[in-house]
Each structure stands twice: as structure tokens, then as C-alpha cells.
Amino acid sequence: MDWLGLYNYWVVVILMMAGFYIVIAQGNLVKKIVGLNIFQTSVFIFFISLAKLDGGSAPVYVEGITEYSNPLPHVLILTAIVVGVALTAMGLALVVRVHELYGSIEEDEIHEQDGSD
């Protein structure tokens, strides 16, 4: 049962592939952004699970505890989450503009309009 200790990576891979599938297979632009969010969250879970230490505690100093999980990935992900939401907002703003120009947020309809011009 040696391989069972790797289950956290498999959860990450499954979530990542779900997000990836949405991004490449769905035509709706808002849904693509949701897919990117899922992908992103899977990366967050990957980093945080790397930081976890058996028998460790949350990285806030308490008298008498010597084992903590690694604070560095926590910092990286903390900033990544906020950057992620800023970029999500940027993407959504572009979607709003696309809807104003084309009247649609479906990828294939936009391609059709581009082709007919």
C-alpha cells in the first residue's frame, strides 16, 4: 500500500483536469473563466498539501511546539489567490466588452460573426 500516500496528488490531478476540460471544451466565455478558477484552486491545493508535515501544526508560534508546516508555500498561495481574483476580474471585464461588441459570449457565434465580416 505504498502508493496510497500519494492520494493528495491524484485529487489535484482530477480537479486540474476538470478545469482543463472546461477551458478547452466549453464554448461559453464565463464558463471558461470558471474552469480557470478550478484549475487554479487545484494548484493551490497542490502547494498547500506539499507544505503539510506529519505531526506538524499551523505555522503560528506556540510555546512547546517545534514542528510546523512549511510557511513558504502558504505565503506564495496567499498572494496567488489575490492575484487570481484580480485576473478573474480582468477576464470578466473583457467578457463584458466582448458581449457589448458581439452580443454573445459563445465562442462559436463570435467566430461566425468574425468570419462573415
Binding site: 499551523a58 503560528v60 496567499l78 498572494t79 489567490i81 489575490v82
Partner: peptide, 12 residues
Amino acid sequence: EYSPGGGFQAGI
């Protein structure tokens, strides 16, 4: 500084 938290969470 003493408990979980900081500028990012507080701002949001």
C-alpha cells in the same frame, strides 16, 4: 502578527 490574518484578508 499574532493570529492568522494580514493585509490581504483584512482588505477583502
